[in-house]
């Protein structure tokens, strides 16, 4: 009942986010809000929505960073939601047991009926993945779309998180990271998926795929740095070509 599951869960469900293809469109964030505001965490309140300082509860947010300088500089759109950490500090600090990590699939959830809104879990989470709903007085967070992924009222193919289903660039992948054969595990393996802030020792389940090398990559193996002028000049080349 308290703390983290004693044994690692058999399944480790999570997301793999591809920073190489995320174009920063915010679709996942808005669709997440749309799904969840009527779902498990209903509602995701928006305060002062049409006034000077609107502020809403979002379970997923897209940041934009610039990285490096000059030729090797790049811009990276960076979506972030709960990483469903294996060693989740948000769970262990929770005084009520409202925060818990499911022993069967590793999903970290808040039980709103138990939450007292002490906010301590949001202090403990290094990633800013907890969202306090002032109006409801409880903590909210990414549920990994618990009410979609197992939802028997949905077609099998739709049983993926809302953010994954909606992402136009397919930059978000969902699956079981405990299974080395899963699509997500293979992506992590092939693309060098990494953890955010490993120094926090949270062992996030979600992984990020790095942007791929820029610039140098040619049109395909074998293209040159530059073209050689046609022998004898273009017109001679044309003659040769046409007389072939």
């Amino acid at each position: 009942m308290t703390g983290l599951p004693t044994a690692p869960s058999e399944k480790r469900l999570g997301l793999v986010i591809d920073l190489d293809t995320c174009v920063g469109c915010h679709a996942c964030a808005v669709n997440c809000k749309e799904w969840n505001t009527g779902g498990y965490h209903a509602p995701l309140t928006d305060e002062r929505p049409y006034d000077t300082d609107p502020s809403g509860v979002w379970l997923n947010r897209i940041h934009t960073f610039e990285v490096g300088e000059g030729e090797s500089g790049r811009l990276v759109h960076f979506p972030k939601s709960c990483l469903h950490c294996e060693d989740a500090p948000c769970v262990t600090v929770c005084p009520t047991g409202a925060s818990y990590k499911r022993s069967e699939d590793g999903i970290v959830l808040v039980d709103e009926d138990m939450c007292i809104g002490c906010k301590l879990c949001s202090w403990a989470c290094p990633y800013g993945a907890r969202e306090y709903d002032q109006d409801a007085g409880v903590m909210k967070k990414c549920t990994l779309c618990i009410d979609r992924i197992y939802n028997e009222n949905l077609d099998e193919i739709d049983r993926v998180p809302a953010c994954v289903a909606t992402c136009p660039a397919s930059a978000r992948h969902f699956g079981d990271l405990a299974d080395p054969q899963s699509h997500v595990s293979r992506l992590v393996e092939a693309r060098g998926g990494f953890d955010l802030m490993p120094e926090m020792e949270t062992q996030p389940v979600n992984k990020y795929l790095p942007p791929r090398a820029k610039g140098g990559q040619a049109g395909g193996p074998g293209s040159d740095d530059k073209l050689m002028p046609a022998a004898g000049g273009f017109l001679a080349w044309l003659d040769r070509t046409l007389s072939d």
């Binding site: 308290t2 703390g3 769970v91 262990t92 929770c94 005084p95 047991g97 007292i116 301590l120």
Partner: peptide, 9 residues
Amino acid sequence: RAVTQWRSS
């Protein structure tokens, strides 16, 4: 409820 999780919190 805040006193229930003494094992970890």
